[in-house]
C-alpha cells in the first residue's frame, strides 16, 4: 500500500487513487501525417522503465483531480508529486541491480531494451 500525497487533499492511501500511466506523452501535432506504426507507437508503446518513471495519477475517490507522480517503479518510492502543467523535476533514482541483470527498460524482457 502506497501513501500518496495528493497536491490538493494531502496524504491518502493508494486505494483512493487510480494510475493513468506514463506522463508527459505529447500528442502528435498533426496526426494525419503519421503512418499506422507511428500512431500505434503514440497510442500504445510505453517505456515501462525499471527505475524512475513519471506517471499520471487521479484521486478518483477524493477530489477527482489529475496530477503527476515521479515514482521509482522498482522500489515503489515516490520521489515527487506535482500538479498537471508543471514541469517534471530533475531527479536521480537509484536503479536497483537485479540478480539476473535485467535491463532498466522492460520488465525482464531483454528484447525491449533500448540502447
Amino acid at each position: 500500500m502506497l501513501i500518496i500525497n495528493c497536491p490538493y487533499c494531502g496524504e491518502r492511501e493508494q486505494e483512493e487513487f487510480s494510475c493513468g500511466g506514463e506522463a508527459h506523452i505529447e500528442r502528435p501535432k498533426n496526426p494525419p501525417d503519421l503512418n499506422d506504426d507511428q500512431w500505434a507507437d503514440y497510442l500504445f508503446l510505453r517505456q515501462n522503465i525499471k527505475g524512475l518513471q513519471y506517471e499520471r495519477w487521479n484521486h478518483s475517490f477524493g477530489c477527482r483531480q489529475w496530477f503527476n507522480v515521479a515514482r521509482n517503479t522498482a522500489t515503489d518510492e515516490i520521489l515527487a508529486v506535482y500538479k498537471m502543467g508543471e514541469k517534471p523535476p530533475a531527479l536521480e533514482s537509484n536503479n536497483p541491480i537485479t540478480p539476473c541483470g535485467e535491463p532498466a527498460i522492460g520488465s525482464g524482457n531483454f528484447s525491449t531494451s533500448k540502447k
Partner: peptide, 19 residues
C-alpha cells in the same frame, strides 16, 4: 475506511471524500 480520521477530520469544519 482507509482514511486517517484523526489527521484529516480533526475539527468540526473538516470534511473528506474517501472510499
Amino acid at each position: 475506511i482507509v482514511l486517517d480520521i484523526d489527521n484529516v477530520l480533526n475539527s468540526n469544519l473538516r470534511v473528506a471524500q474517501t472510499i
